[in-house]
């Protein structure tokens, strides 16, 4: 395989006395879909937060594109083309979908108005609208607060926002959890299209058939460590579940 895009080694993360990560390693290769699976509490969300600059690991090293990487804030990750759909979505419920998509990346009016920080709401709304259409977020209207949308719609907005800005890697922490069948298919479709543009996708999901159908590889996290890695084409639901529960172990997986 080619050189890894992102490699995490021996990450630990303690919250007080809770050890959320106990020497977790993780690898993502350029342009692949890799699923990160594990039981509830295995540390998947914590790992994603450490890899997107939201939390700082207690110890461990990261390399990105072969260079050592230190993420001291979410901006450090964003600057490198890494975007994240957080499990709790992290959207501002009182703002509309367009405002959420451009949050932290607002388009300003040209000239003097822009100097004073005046927003170009029309441009943002237009671009957001095109983008949501392209990435299958179905909304009746684009100027209602996110809170007025259904859980599924909120999730699609968060997905659309992340893929709008990612140029290298997208983390999606349970992006299909609240979705109906149609919307779920649409998100999986988005994942494949993003991958086809050469952007790596890290998918977290509890739905094993979904994981097997969309991924190139699967990494398994258990009790804060990586316990197994599989090629999606040579594994099965039984094997994945075995690794998640500890019934099956791979010797070299935590290297």
């Amino acid at each position: 395989m080619s050189r890894p895009l992102l490699e995490a080694r021996d990450l630990t993360k303690n919250y007080g006395t809770v050890e959320a990560l106990r020497g977790a390693s993780f690898t993502a290769y350029p342009g692949e879909v890799v699923s990160l699976i594990g039981d509830n509490g295995a540390g998947k969300s914590t790992l994603v937060k450490c890899l997107s600059g939201v939390e700082q690991p207690t110890s461990g090293t990261l390399t990105f594109d072969g260079e050592p990487l230190h993420l001291s804030s979410p901006n450090d990750a964003r600057d490198r083309g890494i975007e994240t759909v957080f499990q709790d979505l992290a959207v501002a419920p009182d703002l509309d979908p367009a405002a959420n998509m451009f949050l932290g990346r607002e388009i300003l009016k040209p000239g003097v108005l822009g100097f004073f920080g005046v927003l170009d709401k029309k441009a943002m709304r237009r671009q957001a609208s095109e983008h949501f259409t392209r990435f299958g977020a179905t909304l009746q209207s684009i100027d209602v607060p996110i809170a007025a949308l259904s859980g599924g719609q909120r999730q699609s907005v968060a997905v659309a926002r992340s893929v709008a800005w990612a140029s290298k890697l997208v983390f999606m922490d349970e992006p299909t959890a609240a979705l109906g069948v149609v919307q779920r298919e649409r998100v999986l479709d988005v994942i494949k299209r993003v991958r086809d543009e050469g952007i790596a996708v890290v998918l977290i999901s509890h739905n094993m058939p979904e994981v097997l159908s969309v991924s190139d590889r699967v990494e398994v996290l258990r009790l804060g460590r990586r316990v197994a890695r599989f090629k999606a084409s040579d594994t099965s639901v039984e094997e994945l579940v075995g690794a998640m529960t500890g019934a099956l172990t791979q010797e070299d997986a935590d290297q």
Binding site: P74, T84, D88, V91, A92, L103, G104
Partner: peptide, 9 residues
Amino acid sequence: NEEAARRVG
């Protein structure tokens, strides 16, 4: 959502 604001930088 203060945390959301923080996470978008």
